[in-house]
Each structure stands twice: as structure tokens, then as C-alpha cells.
Design a protein around this nucleic acid. Structure first.
Lengths: 341, 341
DNA sequence: CGCACAATTGACAGCGCTATCATATCTGAT
DNA sequence: ATCAGATATGATAGCGCTGTCAATTGTGCG
């Protein structure tokens, strides 16, 4: 078992100086053809793998971007992460993903971890943070991008959608379609879900239709099965005429539960989801939803980060609203199309 | 704007030596109460964040685990990744996820990247690699865990399921249930899908039922929409009596397409998916599928990695078969339950 | 009181790479 | 032939931390 192979070993074998090897590996075209070949051969023969920690320490550049998401377990964030990867990897950045598990404390740790790695930008889901998190991010002097919501006071760039308004629009579309008893279903209260609920509440109040008995929830992470369980809670107070579900998983479960209980969708009860996941268009009946543009959001977030990295610290305090769209399908007939935000 | 805060700055402010600060941060209990307090205050006052690159270089330990998945865009891998995170983070390991985009060349790069970061173990989806990838992994002398399939020659630990057999069992269950013209649907040919297809082919051959016209595919990444499109290809040759779909997304799309075309599921055509995603139990009709245990697989993979890391290199050449289960629902009536692998 | 021993703290060197500046080599125009 | 200017390579030092071993202090016991 051989000891660790370093740049010096390669240099010795190729009979050049270590610094030349370093250059040849990072910037092949600035080294003469012949040396490049000698070095490549030496690298292959020795199975040399550069030590990134040493490189990062010496160059004070990590070539890494930190990303914080609440969970990996949700397609919402998969699509977004995929977009981030697709923008960053081709330009030589590594993407470091950390999972805050919907907790502001864990988010604070995540920020600390990422800053410790000297990531060159941080992209985070959400706009609410602990005071210390905000301070750390501000002091870090690196580009910070907050996503998925719109911020009152963005730390750097902010790109997202107005979740309160989306919830409001979703609800009032149902009201405009003639439904009076519009119910609301939700699971765990993450920030974004809570904002959408506020939108629902305001719309119901504005229409003079609010009633606590119309809102059902259960503190568990969203799933189709949970949608069915929460829907079943209406058995006690009587079922509403329409239900706005905090996301499509809940909506699908709710719809199945209705059908299991002999309620026809949409004749007896209309159902509206959120996020427009792929299965919404393929459920039966097909599920109406609010389309959010996760992939685009990730893409734009990444591009904004790159823009700031290239310009040096442009003081960008930009807020980008990417909006949302009501997608009307069979589960909510007769609904007018509301404009995006 | 202040220059970078280092350990030395903290040491100076706390009036102790740098090494003591280092110790206090890593192992608070071996430092006296008073110093610990002084140091903590200094850290807070300065907003000190340790430089992980320096730490990794000096200690020759990365406290990082490398994970390679083909895509982030698929729940299959989200569940698996979540499991890995849940095991590794609490014991102080960082999880570095890299995306090979279903390409062996990108996988090779991913391995190189991870080894460059001196990750302490590598967990990779799949068992087929380029020669160089294998060599790099073997030479690295770190625990290597291959997952999702069973390997002929595992590099280190292997935990997965027999995809060929799963495809065989799925198909022969349909045959045993009395279907003769059993079709097959597939999208992109990733390794695992290809193995399941081989299982299908063998089962059909063994039953003397094989026919190329029963197999339809389209080289695109799996999605519900793709399932509908590929199913539609049967319009030319006539529809089979049953279809085994390479995964549940394709199966759901296929089912919808059948219904759109006026074919009743399961009366006119039975449909069987793979992976048993959550929506399978909530489709209408509910979708039969082969349940694979992604979360458990991730969990066991992580635990095995930890075992090797703690024991030093136990030469574990273990192969762990976690099996699969046929889950019978409405889309394939009258099907007997086959045992897991 | 002196000593072995544990419990704390510190000095020093070095991890493997790259930034910086210096040197050597090669153009081609005068 | 000569020299400015580009091009290619090398020497040196240091990034910020931790492993190792040494030095200091405190403790209990004969």
C-alpha cells in the first residue's frame, strides 16, 4: 500500500517543478505541449488526485456554492436543485446542498457549515431566518440569494413568488366560481404553507365566508396519505363545497378520500391543489392547481449568483417575482383563470 | 470591511494559544471552564468561522461522505438521500452529493471530484463503472458501497436488489394470472431499467410468449407524460392484455392513456408498475407495483459505511439483498403474491 | 517536604497546494 | 548582432489549521 501521492511526486516523475504541474493541471494551454504530455502521463501512472482542501486553502477560493433546502424528500426541491446543478457545474462550481429540516436552528448551523467551507455564494429557500443567521450571511460578504418567497428585507437577491397572494388568488377563484363553503387543508406549517394559509384566511374574510370549521390540518409532513386523513376530518362538521389544499399531494389524497366516501369530484366537492406537480394532469379527475415555476426559479437564482460573482459584489438588492398560474382542470370546473402575480 | 478572522485572532483576544482555541472548539470538555468561556466570547465577538479547508488539510480528515446518484430529479433517489443524511449528519459527517446524470463518464468525474475532497467513504448508485472508475475506487482504500443493484464483483459492500429477477417475477406474475400478450414499457435505458427489461424478456421467452412488438420504449427520461406517449405506440400493433411498466410514472401515464382511449383498466388491460411510489396506492384504479425499499437501502448503506469506518478497513465483501415485493392492487386483479428476492 | 502522576496548556512544524515575483528562453524587428 | 517584449518555467513563502511532543500546573501520598 503506497503512501499518498502528491503534486510533488508527479513533479518529480515528470521532472519539472511542482508549480508547473499545478499550472498544467489547472490551465493546460499555458504549458508547452511536451510538458503537458509528460505531466499527464505522470498523473496517470501515479493515479494522482489533487487534494482540494490544500487547493482551497492556498487559493482562498472554494469554487463551491452553498444551497440550503428544507428537505430533500420533496420533488419541489428536486427540480430546483437540478436547475442549480445545471447552471453551476458547467462553469466549474461545485454545489453543496445542506438540509435544514424545516428548522431555523438547523438553518443557522447549515449557514455556519457552508461559511466554514468558504462557499462563494449561498442560495437559501425561504426569507425568514434567525437574527444570527442574518448577521452571518450579511457579514460574509458573499452573494446571498433567498428563494421561493418574496422578502420584505432581502439580504441580497430575492427571487420567488408572493405566497400570500397565491393563497388569496386560489381561494378567491373558488369563491368567484360560486363556492361559498370553501375549505382549507394543510399539513406541516412551513413558512410558505403558512403564508398561503394567510392568503386563504384573508380571501375568506374579505368575502365574509370565514369559519374555523372549514380549516383542517395535521402537523405531519405533507403526503398523499395525509391528504386523505385530513380530509376525513370533515366527516364531523360536514364537507365543504370546495377545498383548497396546501399542495398537490394533499389534494390528491383528499380527492381519493372523497371518492372513497362516495362524494363525487367535482360535482359534490371541488378540489384545488398547489404547485402543479406532474401527476396533477394525470389524476382522475384531473386536478386543478396553481403552477409554480421551481425549475426556472432555480435557474434564475443560479444565474443571479453568477452575475454577482463575476461583477464582484454588485450591491444587488433586487427582488424578482416569478409569479404563478392557476391551471384549471376537471376537479374545479367553471373557474375563471386568474392572472399571475 | 474587516479582513478575515482566523483562529489566531480568537487566540489573541482570548489571550491563549491558538492550539488551545482549536481544542476548545473541537472538544470543549478537555479545556477548563474559564478558558472555554473566554474563547466562546472571543469567537462570538469576532464572528469567527473556522476554515474547514485548513482543518481538512491539517488533520487529513474530511469528515465527508461522497454520494453519487444518477439524478436528483427522481423521488427514488430523494428518499435514499434523505436516509443517508439522517444517518450521517448526527455522527458528524457531511454528505456530499454528486450527480452523474446517468453517464459513466460523468460518474468517473464525480469519483475524481469526491476523491479530491478526500471523502472518507463513497456510496454510489449502480454496479457498472468504467475501468478507471473501478481502479480509482479500489486504490482509494476507503469504504465503497454500491447500491440499488446486486453486483457480480462488488468493489466493497454491495446492497441492492436483483433487478433482473424483479423484472422476471413481475412479468411471470402477470403470465401466471393468465395474461398471454404481456407488453413492456420503458423510457431511458439506465442500468437498472435495462436489467428489469432483461428479466421481462427472459420470463416471456420461458413462457414462449416473447414478441418484439410487445415492447415499446422511447429514449427519454421517465415521466408520467412519457408513459402516455409510449403506451400510445400500441395503437399500431394492437394493445396487449397486460403491461409491465419500468416504473410507476410510466405506469400512471400508460393507465391514463388507456382510459383516454376507451380501454378499461383492468378489464381490458392490466397495468403493473415498479417502485411503488406513494401515488400508486391513490391512483384510480389503484396501481399494482413492485415495492422497492429505497429508504432502507440508504439507511443500511450508511450504516455499513460507518461500520467500516469505525473498524478500520474490515475487508467486507458483503452483498446484501434487500429484496422487493409485489403489491397487488386494482390495476392487476387476480394476481398471486410472489415472494421477495 | 518531595515526588509520581494526572490534568492543562503551549511550541513547533508541516499538511499540499497556489500567489507572487523572478528567471530563463524564444520571438522578430532594428 | 542586439534588445524589447512576449512566453515558459522555477523559487519562495505562506494559506489556517492540527498532530506531536514538551512544558507547566495542580493533586495526593509516603
Amino acid at each position: 500500500m503506497s503512501r499518498k501521492i502528491t503534486l510533488d511526486d508527479v513533479a518529480k516523475l515528470a521532472r519539472v517543478s511542482p508549480i508547473t504541474v499545478s499550472r498544467a493541471l489547472r490551465n493546460p494551454q499555458i504549458v508547452s505541449e511536451e510538458l503537458r504530455l509528460r505531466i499527464d502521463n505522470a498523473v496517470k501512472k501515479l493515479g494522482y488526485v489533487p487534494n482540494i482542501a490544500a487547493s482551497r486553502l492556498a487559493s482562498a477560493r472554494s469554487h463551491a456554492i452553498g444551497v440550503i433546502v428544507p428537505t430533500l424528500y420533496n420533488v419541489i426541491f428536486s427540480e430546483y436543485l437540478q436547475a442549480l446543478h445545471e447552471v453551476f457545474l458547467p462553469v466549474g462550481f461545485q454545489v453543496v446542498v445542506v438540509n435544514s429540516r424545516y428548522s431555523l436552528e438547523e438553518e443557522e448551523n447549515a449557514v455556519r457549515t457552508l461559511l466554514g467551507q468558504r462557499v462563494e455564494a449561498i442560495i437559501v429557500v425561504g426569507v425568514n431566518h434567525t437574527d444570527l443567521t442574518r448577521r452571518l450571511l450579511q457579514q460574509s460578504r458573499i452573494p446571498v440569494i433567498e428563494t421561493f418567497q418574496l422578502a420584505q428585507e432581502p439580504i441580497g437577491i430575492n427571487i420567488g413568488l408572493d405566497q400570500v397572494r397565491a393563497g388569496y388568488d386560489a381561494t378567491s377563484s373558488l369563491i368567484k366560481a360560486g363556492y361559498r363553503r370553501v375549505g382549507f387543508l394543510m399539513g406541516n406549517r412551513d413558512e410558505r404553507a403558512t403564508e398561503r394559509r394567510r392568503g386563504y384566511e384573508r380571501a375568506m374574510e374579505d368575502a365574509g365566508l370565514a369559519s374555523p370549521s372549514l380549516m383542517k390540518s395535521q402537523q405531519q409532513s405533507s403526503s398523499i396519505a395525509l391528504g386523505a386523513r385530513v380530509m376525513a376530518q370533515f366527516k364531523q362538521d360536514g364537507f365543504p363545497e370546495a377545498v383548497f389544499c396546501i399542495d398537490d399531494n394533499l389534494a390528491l389524497g383528499a380527492m381519493q378520500e372523497c371518492m372513497r366516501l362516495g362524494l363525487r369530484v367535482p360535482d359534490d366537492i371541488a378540489i384545488l391543489g398547489f404547485h402543479d406537480l406532474e401527476f396533477a394532469a394525470f389524476a382522475s379527475p384531473t386536478l386543478s392547481s396553481i403552477a409554480t415555476h421551481r425549475y426556472e426559479m432555480g435557474k434564475i437564482a443560479a444565474e443571479q449568483a453568477l452575475r454577482l460573482l463575476n461583477r464582484g459584489a454588485g450591491t444587488g438588492q433586487d427582488v424578482i417575482d416569478i409569479g404563478y398560474e392557476l391551471v384549471c382542470r376537471q376537479s374545479t370546473p367553471d373557474m375563471s383563470i386568474a392572472g399571475p402575480g
